[in-house]
Write a protein that binds this DNA or RNA. Structure first.
Length: 278
DNA sequence: ATTCTCACCTGTTAGC
DNA sequence: TGCTAACAGGTGAGAA
């Protein structure tokens, strides 16, 4: 679930609660994380200078000059909890601080999440990220769309084209701009591109304001759920009626993903806006 | 080259 | 009720 708005929320929480703090000890690093980056243990003694976001990645800047990359993938969570609380089975990284009575936990049920130092030899995915979805413009989007005939949803989910959108916000953005997820990229009309640009920005901005969407496991660093779930128009709304046209929202499988849409107002073919007169 | 499919891992839920 | 299969928000390796 963590897409751009959720990751942004976590980064803000990290800046509020861990910026300037020095790691004292690391009581636990799970095997799969330790194997991926054997230097994780050297975080002890280092200080968090700042936290940043790029796409769905969290970047922790350290006083040593190093950058720690964190990706939550499907089920990752960053949590600050009381020092005395017992470690749970899916807590894969735990660190204490030289100040305060809390500890930082990386909890991740499905173990897809990543935590490792940025090096020149790793994280190709990070270095190949496309433009931030929050910074999209009609011109940039038009350029991305013009060079491909794959379904538009595939492009929206492609992090090397547009960084930050995931399944939820891709579906929501397409719904708002009335475009069918399977529409070939190069068949999206100019007016629709302008619409889609605005929809993407609007959906992401509102979701950030609501601290993200909690569908299943996502929460902020204090365990608080995201409030945007209440504002979803199509995602997870199959069976409900469309608030625009009243048709029943459906769920299909598109580009390998569960995909939600309104068959009444999301057009597979471009809509002819004006009839040509003679 | 681009695009698609599957695997990664665990928990939950739909279906029998 | 109990078991099994399918599915879940993301990505990357390898196949097509």
């Amino acid at each position: 679930m963590p897409e751009l708005p959720e990751v942004e929320t976590v980064v803000r929480g990290l800046n509020a609660q861990a910026k300037g703090r020095t790691i004292k000890t690391i009581p636990h690093i799970a095997e799969h994380l330790r194997k991926r980056d054997t230097e994780l243990r050297t975080l002890a003694g280092d200080t968090f200078v700042n936290f940043d976001r790029r796409g769905k990645y969290i970047i922790a800047e350290l006083a040593s000059g190093r950058q720690l990359l964190i990706h939550l993938r499907m089920s990752g969570q960053i949590l600050f909890i009381d020092n005395r609380e017992r470690r749970q089975s899916h807590d894969h990284f735990v660190s204490t601080f030289t100040t305060g009575s809390d500890k930082l936990i990386f909890r991740d049920t499905r173990k897809f999440g990543i935590m490792e130092f940025l090096r020149e030899t790793n994280n190709e995915g990070f270095r190949k990220l496309g433009i931030e979805a929050t910074a999209i413009t009609p011109t940039i989007l038009a350029n991305l769309l013009s060079v491909s005939s794959r379904p538009i949803k595939a492009l929206l989910l492609d992090q090397s084209a547009l960084a930050g959108l995931g399944n939820i916000y891709a579906d929501e953005s397409l719904y708002l701009s009335r475009i069918h997820p399977l529409r070939p990229c190069n068949q999206v009309q100019k007016t629709e591109i302008v619409e889609l640009t605005a929809s993407i920005r609007k959906v992401l901005d509102s979701a950030i304001k609501k601290m993200g969407t909690t569908f299943d496991s996502y929460s902020g660093v204090n365990g608080n759920p995201g409030e945007y779930s209440r504002y979803l128009r199509v995602y997870n709304q199959e069976g409900n009626s469309c608030s625009r046209c009243g048709e029943t929202i459906i769920k299909i499988r598109a580009v390998g993903r569960g995909t939600h849409l309104c068959p009444g107002c999301q057009q597979l073919k471009p809509v002819r806006r004006r009839k040509r007169v003679r």
